[in-house]
């Protein structure tokens, strides 16, 4: 099990982003995290990767405190060292026990690995960063907005890769602003609101989540949009 107990964190004193978050997740599954902008999704992932230290709470994985050595992290925004080629970037990451066939991955993602990354498109950069996260073959994979910038084909390919990783026993934590992207690959979606997990939805409950999101949005913005854009 992947357990998070009473996780608290705030960037400023008195303004907590996560307010005693509790969550218990099954390992070997794809866990999605949804929420409005500023709900704390990225902060939550940064805490799991130990980028930042929580003010309280603990994170355990299979009964022991989760170590960064067990986690790979794909950040939402990816930047690269200037004038570095894709191949050089990947060579900086040690391959995990399962090995890493760079040539086959290159073919799968159609990446010009010998060109400098500055000549890559946004989607190609995202794919390169994803390969770097996959290469160390860690048991826990954190993917923050992995679908951003990917074309239709690559997004579908990523969904297939995630399914394959789940079969291999990996635990995958994934965020996205796009409901359809999460629904297409996750086993469970956790909805973050006000620094807590408001509710977790299993695959069967995904339509319910969609309806709830729809009604939240209607309530929040429906009237504003109607007033803003005059009807013909």
């Amino acid at each position: 099990m992947f357990t998070i107990e009473h996780l608290r964190f705030g960037y400023q004193k008195g303004k907590e982003v996560l307010k005693g978050l509790d969550l218990s997740m099954e390992t070997g599954k794809i866990q999605g995290f949804a929420g409005l902008n500023g709900a704390g999704k990225t902060t939550f992932l940064n805490l799991i990767y130990h980028f930042i230290r929580p003010s309280d709470g603990k994170i355990t994985y299979n009964g022991h405190p989760l170590l960064r050595r067990e986690v790979s992290y794909l950040e939402a925004e990816n930047y690269f060292y200037p004038y570095m080629t894709g191949r050089e970037y990947l060579e900086l990451f040690p391959a995990g026990g399962g090995g890493f066939d760079m040539e086959r991955w290159r073919q799968l993602f159609s990446l010009p690995l010998d060109d400098i990354v500055e000549s890559y498109s946004t989607g190609m950069r995202k794919k390169l960063a994803l390969l770097a996260a996959l290469k160390p073959d860690k048991p826990v994979l954190i993917l923050d907005e992995p679908f951003n910038g990917l074309d239709l084909e690559s997004a579908h390919l990523l969904t297939m890769i995630l399914a394959q990783l789940r079969t291999g026993g990996k635990t995958i934590l994934i965020t996205s602003h796009i409901y359809e992207s999460l629904a297409g690959c996750c086993d469970v979606i956790h909805y973050l609101s006000d620094g807590q997990i408001a509710r977790s939805y299993t695959r069967e409950e995904f339509p319910l989540l969609q309806d709830e999101l729809q009604s939240i949005m209607e309530e929040r913005f429906g009237g504003l949009i109607a007033g803003l854009i005059p009807s013909q």
């Binding site: 060292y81 200037p82 004038y83 050089e88 900086l92 060109d115």
Partner: peptide
């Protein structure tokens, strides 16, 4: 700066010295 290749870098410079390689 929108070059795809740049000056050829010898392989004997290890990947870890990426600053020198990219420089």
């Amino acid at each position: 700066w929108r070059r795809a290749k740049g000056f050829p870098v010898p392989r004997l410079i290890p990947a870890e010295a990426f600053e020198v390689r990219t420089g």
